[in-house]
Design a protein around this nucleic acid. Structure first.
Lengths: 223, 223
DNA sequence: AATAGATTGGAACATCGTTCCATAAACAGC
DNA sequence: GCTGTTTATGGAACGATGTTCCAATCTATT
C-alpha cells in the first residue's frame, strides 16, 4: 500500500495535490481550480491526479477539511467553555474570510467532514458549560448552522468582491449600502433603514453578537 | 419595451422561462437544468433564451427569488411578531425542503435578492417586537444567517439523498446516524453520543428550537 | 534479467455555458 | 400596401471543463 521509498523527490501524493489545490484556490479563486491548472502546477498530466483523488468534489472536500482541521486545533484546552466557543467560531470565521472557497464547500454535496469537526468542538464545550443533555443537540446544531450560515454569506460576498475587482472592503460595503439605501421605501423599509449601519459595521463584532445571542438563549436553559 | 401584442400564443418571456426552469429543477435536480434541456422543454433554441435572461446565474437567482417571494407573502399581517418570525422561518425551511436547489442559491455569487427579502421580513417584526434600534441589525442578520445556514445544510442533505437514490428520509437519516455512531470515540465523543438523537429527531422541531434560542437571546435585550 | 503491479502523462470524449449569425415576425413611417 | 428597422428566434459553432482511457515508464519482487 504505502510505498517505502519515494518514486522521486517530488512524487505525487494526495497531500501534495491538496496543497497545490489550496495554493491555486487562495491565489486565484474557486473558478481557477481546474485539473489542467493543477496538473500544470504539479508538472504532470491531468490523468495522473485521478490516481490519488476520486474527483473534484473529493479534492475540494479534502482541501476544506485541511483548513478547518488546522483552525479547530488552535483552541487552548484549558479555555473556559463560553470563551472556547467564541474562539472556535471566530477562528472559523477568519478562516473563511481568508479562504472564501471553504465557505462554499460547507454546503456542497457529500459527507462534509469539515462541518462535523465544528459540531464536535462546539458540542463538547456546551456539555462542559452545563447545557442539559436533552438540549445539547439542538443548541449545538443551532450554533453550527449559524456559524456556517455567516461563513457562507461572507464567502459569497468575498467572491463577489473579487469578481467585481473590488479589493477595498469599505468601498465594497459602501456600494451595497448605496444599493440598500436606494430600495423602495414601501417594499423594504427595514433594510433601507439599516443601510447606514451596514456601511461601517464590523464583520467580526456582528458575527460574535450572534454567537452571544445564541449563548444567551442557551444560558436560559441552564437551571 | 413591453410588446402590446403577443408574438404568438406561447411567446417566450422571462416568466415562462423561469417557470420551466423551476419545473426542471424540481423534477430532476440542479444538475438537470441546462440551457439545452430548457430549450427542449420550451421548444426553442438555446440562443433564444439569452434574449430574456443574462446568464445561468440570473436564471437561478430569478427562480429562487420567485419561490422565496411566494413564501414570504404568506404571513398574515396581523400576526404577533414572535409568531410571525417563527412562521416566516418555517415557511423558508419548508420551501427549501421542497426545492433544495433554492438552498444552494442563497450562497451563490450575485446580489441574492432572496436573502434580502427574508432580512426585510424578519427585521420588520423585530422592530415591532421592541428590540432596541441599535440591536436590530445584529439580531436580524443573526436570525437570517441561522435560517440560511439550516436551509443550506438541509439542501445539501436532500441533494445527497437524491444522488444516493434514497427517497426514504428515516432510512437516509439512519445511515448518517450509523456513520456517526461508528466514529472514533477519542476524536468525536460528542457527535458519537448524538447519533441516537439524530436518528429520530424532527427537522422542523430542531430548526424552530434554534429560532427560539435566538429569540430568547433577543428577549434579554429588551429592557 | 524478467515479470507484475503501481504510477504517470497526455490524448480523446462528452457535455456544458455562451456567442454568433442568418432569419423571421412585428412595428413604424410613408 | 410597401419598406426599412427593431425585436425576437433557433440552431450551429466555440472554447473550456471534468473525466476516461491507454500506452509508456518506473519500482519491487522473483
Amino acid at each position: 500500500m504505502a510505498p517505502r521509498t519515494e518514486r522521486r523527490a517530488d512524487a505525487l501524493s494526495k497531500a501534495k495535490i491538496v496543497e497545490a489545490a489550496i495554493a491555486i484556490l487562495d491565489a486565484d479563486g474557486e473558478a481557477a481550480l481546474t485539473f489542467r491548472a493543477l496538473a500544470a502546477r504539479l508538472s504532470t498530466g491531468a490523468g495522473a491526479i485521478y490516481w490519488h483523488v476520486a474527483d473534484k468534489n473529493d479534492l475540494l472536500a479534502a482541501a476544506a477539511d485541511d483548513i478547518v482541521a488546522q483552525v479547530m486545533a488552535k483552541i487552548p484546552a484549558e479555555a473556559e467553555p463560553r470563551a472556547a466557543i467564541r474562539a472556535m467560531a471566530l477562528n472559523v470565521f477568519e478562516a473563511v474570510d481568508a479562504h472564501p472557497w471553504v465557505g462554499a464547500q460547507f454546503f456542497r454535496d457529500p459527507s462534509r467532514p469539515a462541518a462535523l469537526r465544528i459540531l464536535e468542538g462546539v458540542g463538547r464545550q456546551l456539555h462542559a458549560l452545563g447545557v442539559p443533555e436533552a438540549a445539547q443537540f439542538d443548541t449545538a446544531t443551532a450554533l453550527v448552522s449559524y456559524i456556517l450560515g455567516v461563513a457562507g454569506q461572507n464567502a459569497a460576498n468575498a467572491r463577489q468582491a473579487r469578481e467585481s475587482g473590488r479589493t477595498d472592503r469599505s468601498a465594497f460595503l459602501g456600494e451595497i449600502a448605496d444599493r440598500w439605501a436606494a430600495l423602495d421605501p414601501e417594499q423594504h423599509p427595514f433594510v433601507r433603514r439599516m443601510a447606514a449601519q451596514l456601511r461601517d459595521h464590523g464583520d467580526r463584532a456582528q458575527f460574535l453578537a450572534g454567537v452571544d445571542l445564541i449563548l444567551a438563549g442557551a444560558a436560559s436553559l441552564i437551571g
